[in-house]
Nucleic acid binder design. Structure first.
Lengths: 233, 233
DNA sequence: GTGCCAAGAATGGCATACCATTTTGGTCCT
DNA sequence: AGGACCAAAATGGTATGCCATTCTTGGCAC
């Protein structure tokens, strides 16, 4: 069975992986695999045999191999010589380490955002924040999660530092699975919400040190819990 | 001819790219190209045509292409559809941005190192520091540069955070060229040396905040100069 | 019955062939 | 003489085939 045929019997699984339809095939394959890895449709440790995947995706092995190499350098899969590619296992240690770096990156981004963002940008951030608060009050975890992600990403985006943004995007992807699962069973939801209030206040008052500290603290608290208990997924 | 004939007259350009001789070809090619790019043996903007490079390195296009994809995700080359790979241009903006992220990463590393490193580790750092100071007094820029790099890398390594180490390694590579050229014409050499003294003092007294701040300040000062003036290389 | 070994099947690594797109240089028209 | 257009060559993109290594499994010996 084509492993993700959403509807038709013979449809190609890579439908929406097309970003601007004349993108290279390897990008499509890479995007497709990346998407499914971070969305946890592939279990960690699962093998990704070239030939079978190639026929399922209806591409040849060459672009698939190149896509796998890319994902390997991104840390989403690991390739062993003559043993092929498997979806990267994320150990609790990995998560802790990457989450720590993520918090450092977002701290730096918050500082820059305080200095660089326009008042309109901050206002939009506030708007998203209140939207998120509404979701919190309605106990709508799904939308809360989406808006939370959106806010964090936007703070980083507003930093204006492309290198920082790219590295954050990459790291964030690697933690997406855990981030999502974490959100589902976070008992300290109210605390997280309060921390977001503090972050927004600091951003609004344009206090780089404070904003950075609050954000880093927030991420530290949010993550360490789930990195310490072993069975994340 | 096996492309790694170490002695024969028509030896192939990739001699020392071997890390543990039974590594995959693409790794060798990637290491080789990476080395030559960061060492500035390839000019930024220079095209890297697959076929000619392949015959020069005596490999086929397949592993070469995979290596280029890897270098592209690392940011060392850029690949345009149907136009091939060129050595990435490093704009002053790029340098500033990446240097900023580097300083943030090293700041975080210094904090962790204060907490995690053993006394012996710190002592070894001190030893390297004094070696470097000796080079400074002898005006030996070459050795100073090497030891400086070594110290920075070791501080990061001692953090114990693998994710942080990897990201730092990658960024550091991308800035190697500029770092090297910067060292050659740095007039504020004495200042840099003093800052290193301060960093070491903070590490020795195990003051994370202070060590991080000193290191970030040091990097900020060292780099901004060369990022603002346009003609780096 | 269990453990080891060998042969074959499976899988990844590399090379090459073919196709699509882009670049180029030359010619013809204005 | 200059520019536009077309063809041919160059170059990247994809597919496929062959070889080396690894995994699997069936049989034999203990």
């Amino acid at each position: 069975m084509p492993f993700l045929a959403l509807d038709s019997g013979v449809s190609n699984p890579m439908e929406e992986a097309v970003q601007s339809s004349h993108a290279g095939l390897v990008e499509k394959v890479a995007n497709y695999l990346r998407e499914h890895i971070v969305m946890d449709h592939f279990q960690p440790g699962q093998r990704l045999p070239e030939r079978t995947l190639a026929v399922e995706l209806q591409v040849s092995r060459t672009p698939l191999r190149e896509a796998l190499k890319i994902l390997a350098t991104e840390g989403l899969v690991v390739i062993s010589p003559h043993r092929g590619a498997v979806v990267a296992e994320v150990s609790p240690t990995d998560i802790k380490e990457k989450a720590y770096v993520l918090s450092v990156l977002e701290q730096a981004a918050a500082e820059l955002t305080c200095l660089n963002a326009s008042d309109d940008d901050i206002a939009e951030l506030q708007a998203l924040h209140y939207e998120m608060k509404a979701c919190f009050l309605r106990r709508d975890r799904q939308s809360y999660f989406r808006l939370n992600q959106e806010i964090h990403n936007r703070i980083v985006a507003l930093s204006g530092n492309t290198a920082l943004i790219d590295m954050h995007t990459n790291l964030s992807r690697q933690l997406y699975r855990v981030r999502y699962l974490s959100n589902q069973k976070n008992e300290k939801w109210a605390t997280a919400m309060e921390e977001h209030e503090a972050i927004m206040a600091a951003l609004e008052s344009r206090d780089p040190e404070q904003a950075g500290r609050e954000l880093r603290n927030h991420l530290g608290k949010t993550w360490i819990k789930y990195a310490n208990g072993e069975p994340i997924a």
